[in-house]
Design a protein around this nucleic acid. Structure first.
Lengths: 393, 393
DNA sequence: GCTATTTTGTTTAGCGGCTGCACAAAGTCA
DNA sequence: TGACTTTGTGCAGCCGCTAAACAAAATAGC
């Protein structure tokens, strides 16, 4: 098999992976190469066990139908884990963001990262063993900022891990103990969601994608630039949770007041709506339940929505003025806030934009069900997407 | 002459341009190619009239001395212009950021962009004619956000241009009238400063460079990522001037209150220090004069410094938490504020950072005298830096 | 001052990836 | 059924880069 140069092989696999090259001729056009070269590339990817070439079926157009490029259903998978304040999840994810197998369970997160990640590694190993498939890499989404390139947790506000814990090494070690020796990474959960949405969800084809999400607790932000996660110089970028939206607001664990974190998350919504969260289920679930149609008539709920949407709009406007995205996605509770009051949110953002509503950015809800897992898998797949030839060795 | 592929020629020229490859062997190492390939690349660049190969003189080290790579002193130049609220400047800039010729004059800026840019184009044409050198491109720095790719001014707060004016087309047309037909651009002034500082000033080798500057009026921000200006999806990124640092503060032309624009610029400093600006000289000059040593004993000046530094620190902290830069540069009035109270500024930033002072980002003053002009020239040079072969045609 | 060593520049042969072209294959349209 | 259109494949060839051998220019050691 010829070694392709200049990343052509990776570009081709990425196009197939993201669904932008469903047929052979589409790939040829997207790569900007001759049919002969595309043929060689496709042969390589097939030899690597990543894709299969199917029969071309097409109606209406002239000429010889182009063969379909399909992801090999027995091809390798990435191992994805997720830790959030209310529980755990693990999945095997193939090319194209296909979730091949998945399991999840609710449980408190131990204060020791090794104790917290051990069951994730265990469940992952079990899923992988049963699937019998090759593993290209592993990644775990966590509710904490993660430094690059060390892979250390920084001020995880909603789990009890110590700041500076090298959770990437911990995770890799736990997998190695189970005979899984693949490149392993740890990633902030909202970063993972953003990457997943960009590749397979509501963020497709956006070149400057801003994602803000109130997952289980707190608020996170992420930016995907030209298809790659923007992590900043040390992994600590897009700390959207600490954007100030109310100088006289509630204290945030970071030391300031009125951060997006404490002003627009599920706990704040419950308080604003006059509800006391029950301890037996995740706050996020309770908040989204209240946001559903049957409770909208409650004036306290309407007030809470108006308040949080106003705060969220302020925070979004600030981020938009810095990042100038071409699309904004909202996840977690923010997704439901957007759906409850889309007009008010867009209005608030436009009012705070120096350019007015003329330069309005489209704001959409996140589209994926398991964005954290799929996004973690994207990160695990990335080295292969950059250079598929890695699999040959 | 062989056409080099995959941007090798451009990478080589950029290394020489930024001073990272002063000798032939340094270039070979930096490019990661063989000496034979480097030889071919150097021959190409020399044939294009961009560089010359000098004799190698070096003391202390063993082995044959490597030839020096020097920028051709008769090589082509870029044409750089600058418009600011207090006047105009024009320069010819060669490779390496060398200002070959320069002229500037104070004058009010006409409300019609064509009238404002005409003398810039005229002075540029005159400089170019007298120099007798080839021109690779032109760019003009302006005190306004500029949309990409249209090149339109958006809400120029400090000159009277209409929003949406296509000043790039205007500028290109004025140059074409004077028989200068080269690619022409228009760029925000702080963006230009940032690019210049990254290539030739205090931002060298930074991968994530954040620049905030209070030039003549207002405040601007810019970001240089991996050597290229970050413009966002439509050129309107890094609107640092509209970061809110005092919700109850002064009204900003954008409609909000307490923006960095109105809380930390030269006019605000004068007011805080109890001075009334004289109309006969630029406010920035008056403010920096007051900031010099002999006025520091004035308690009102000290108060003004403390107030503005506190506001600036708040704004910087917000930007740093989003961008996570590896270096921050301050220009214009902010440069002098930093020099007047470096400890207080760094303290304020660190206090507002969720990671505390452990992850402190280095904050430095800008180093270049004519950053706006040099940065505009960088933009004009960019197509040639990306593909020097363009000059052959 | 001579030689040995080190590092640099140049020449040459050769490989590998990609293009361009010719031709075959597989569909639609009249 | 035949003309047309589009797609896949085989083959010759170019071009950029590498590898290796050789020549050149300095220092280091005797």
């Amino acid at each position: 098999m010829a070694e392709r140069g200049s990343g052509l092989l990776g570009a081709a696999l990425t196009l197939i992976h993201t669904g932008r090259a469903p047929t052979r001729s589409a790939l040829t056009a997207a790569l900007g190469v001759t049919r002969a070269t595309a043929g060689a590339v496709i042969a390589d990817l097939r030899d690597l066990g990543l894709i299969q070439v199917g029969a071309g079926s097409r109606g209406g157009a002239q000429g010889r139908p182009s063969h379909r490029l399909v992801i090999d259903p027995e091809g390798p998978v990435a191992l994805a884990g997720q830790v959030h304040p209310d529980g755990f999840a693990v999945a095997l994810v193939g090319l194209g963001g296909q979730v091949v197998a998945r399991t999840s369970w609710a449980a408190p997160v131990p204060d020791d990262p090794a104790h917290a990640l051990a069951p994730v590694a265990g469940a992952a190993a079990e899923l992988l063993r049963r699937s019998g498939r090759r593993c290209v890499g592993a990644a775990c989404a966590v509710p904490s900022a993660v430094t690059e390139p060390e892979g250390a947790a920084v001020s995880p506000l909603y789990v009890g891990w110590p700041t500076g814990a090298k959770i990437r090494d911990t995770f890799a070690g736990l997998l190695a103990d189970r005979q899984i020796s693949v490149p392993s990474r740890v990633v902030n959960d909202v970063n993972a969601v953003a990457l997943a949405e960009h590749r397979h969800g509501a963020g497709r084809n956006a070149e400057y994608l801003l994602v803000v999400s109130a997952e289980h607790r707190g608020v996170g932000g992420a930016l995907v630039l030209h298809g790659a996660l923007y992590t900043g110089s040390s992994g600590l970028s897009m700390e959207a949770g600490h954007v100030s939206v109310d100088p006289g607001g509630r204290p945030c664990p970071c030391g300031n007041r009125g951060c997006l974190n404490v002003e627009t998350d599920a706990a704040r919504f419950m308080a604003a709506a006059g509800r006391v969260p029950r301890p037996d289920s995740p706050v996020l679930d309770q908040a989204t339940a209240i946001l559903s149609a049957e409770h909208r008539s409650d004036p306290r709920v309407a007030e809470a929505v108006a308040l949080l949407v106003q705060r969220l709009g302020l925070g979004l406007a600030g981020l938009i003025n810095v990042v100038n995205p071409d699309r904004v996605l909202l996840g977690g509770l923010h997704k439901y806030l957007l759906q409850a009051a889309p007009g008010q949110l867009r209005e608030t953002v436009a009012l705070r934009s120096p350019w007015g509503r003329g330069a309005a950015v489209p704001i959409h809800p996140c589209a994926l069900d398991h964005g954290g897992l799929i996004g973690a898998a994207e990160l695990a797949w990335q080295p292969v997407l950059d250079n598929p030839g890695l699999l040959a060795r």
